[in-house]
Design a protein around this nucleic acid. Structure first.
Length: 159
DNA sequence: GCCAACGTTGGC
DNA sequence: GCCAACGTTGGC
């Protein structure tokens, strides 16, 4: 039985891990997520084969820069147990890991950045409830509908 | 660098 | 279980 393909948006700071980094390594364990809502999306929502909009945050022009594919279901994030890691969580126990990750595989880099600014200009098409374009949104993983996915990628090609 | 938004922590 | 203080995210 195959679940219908779902779509997600995943943020990354390009100084830390960019779309070019993903293009180089091809598959990356998406470690460091320390937010329960984002974790739950990985744990309860993601399936192998789901589509990912790769988003650059905290940069000159924040926006969608590429696509990727979910390459594993969720499993424990090893960095939570590493005292030397920035992502170390001393309260997490191996018998009951608090934080999970999924593997993300490179798909392609967009021909240009579809900027946050542009997405905001199309709020009517994306829907007011689309969390990315709402003020104060800090969630690093968000669900995207099939219609949003299609529309955002259509913006890649200028008219 | 500033600051609004908002999730988390901890005292009560 | 409330909520103030604190820390982090992320756009600008």
């Amino acid at each position: 039985m195959t679940a219908r393909r779902r779509y997600w948006l995943m943020k990354s700071e390009p100084d830390t891990f960019s779309i070019d980094d993903l293009a180089r390594v091809r598959v990356e364990p998406w470690n460091g997520v320390r937010n329960y809502q984002a974790r739950n999306f990985m744990r309860d929502g993601m399936q192998v084969g789901d589509g990912v909009l790769f988003y650059h945050s905290s940069t000159d022009v924040p926006g969608v820069v590429g696509t990727a594919t979910i390459a594993s279901t969720a499993y424990p994030d090893p960095t939570q147990f590493d005292p030397k890691s920035d992502y170390h969580d001393p309260k997490s126990r191996r018998e009951e890991p608090r934080w999970l990750l999924v593997d993300v595989a490179f798909d392609r880099k967009l021909k240009r950045t579809v900027s946050l600014d542009e997405l905001k200009q199309h709020a009517d098409r994306l829907g007011e409830e689309f969390a990315l374009i709402r003020r104060g949104n800090r969630l690093s993983i968000l669900p995207v509908t099939a219609a949003q996915w299609k529309f955002i990628l259509s913006l890649e090609n200028p008219k």
